[in-house]
Amino acid sequence: MLAVQNLEVVYEDVILVLKGVSLAVPDGAVVALLGGNGAGKTTVLRAITGLLDVHRGSVTKGSVTLDGEPIHALDAPAIVAAGIGQVMEGRRIFSEFTVDENLRVGGHRAPRAEIPARLDRIYDLFPVLAERRRSVAGYLSGGEQQMLAIGRAMMAEPRVLLLDEPSLGLAPLVVQRIRDLIVDINRAGTSVLLVEQNANMALSIADHGYILETGKVVMDKPAAELREDEDVREFYLGLRQEGAASFRDVKHYKRRKRWLS
């Protein structure tokens, strides 16, 4: 199990962004981490994967553990080696590389002898990529690039896969496709922490969900309950009643009433 306990993260030594976040990704689960822009979702992932340094951030309190072993003091390559893979926000494929080269970078730490078999497995999972293995990745469509980013992360055969807004900027049909792929990956035995603003998509496949607002977890429930929750339906699933006041006003009102009391 991947567990984050009471995590506090500060950027540039002064900007407090996470204020005691706790969450857990049990083995085999799909866990959704929801929240609006700037809530701190990406920061949670950076803290787990050792990428805070790159952004002048640091963990000032709390811990990240994998099966009870603390990993927050490890560097990013060691965390990959420990079995945590990630698909970063914005896909971040190497656009000048071919599809094949992108995947091979993902297998950087894998035993050399296993690379061909792993490539085959990824190409089975993503036939579109197989057709274009020699193409320059920058010319792929947005959906294909997202698949490539996921395939690249899977080359390391992680135990836990972290995905940062994989549906961002993709057409609804493509989002469906990505969603199904995440389900396939999870069925094959990889736990998933899915960061999304698209709560609809995320809650449709998650077992459990967390809602993050300005650096705090404000709600933490089984996904089925979140799907039924009035507030979540209104503010994250876009099922708001006509005639309500502006999003921001209602949200503040509701929050005060229901979550911060």
């Binding site: 990428l51 390559p77 990959v80 970063m88 190497f94 000048e96 590389f97 970078v105 950087h108």
Partner: peptide, 23 residues
């Protein structure tokens, strides 16, 4: 080579290379 590929990846995008486990 594999290491050469990792070097080129590093020169394109250090953070992404790190996220793939490249030292």
């Amino acid at each position: 080579s594999r290491v050469g590929l990792a070097m080129r990846a590093t020169s394109l995008d250090q953070e992404t290379a790190l996220a793939q486990g490249v030292d």
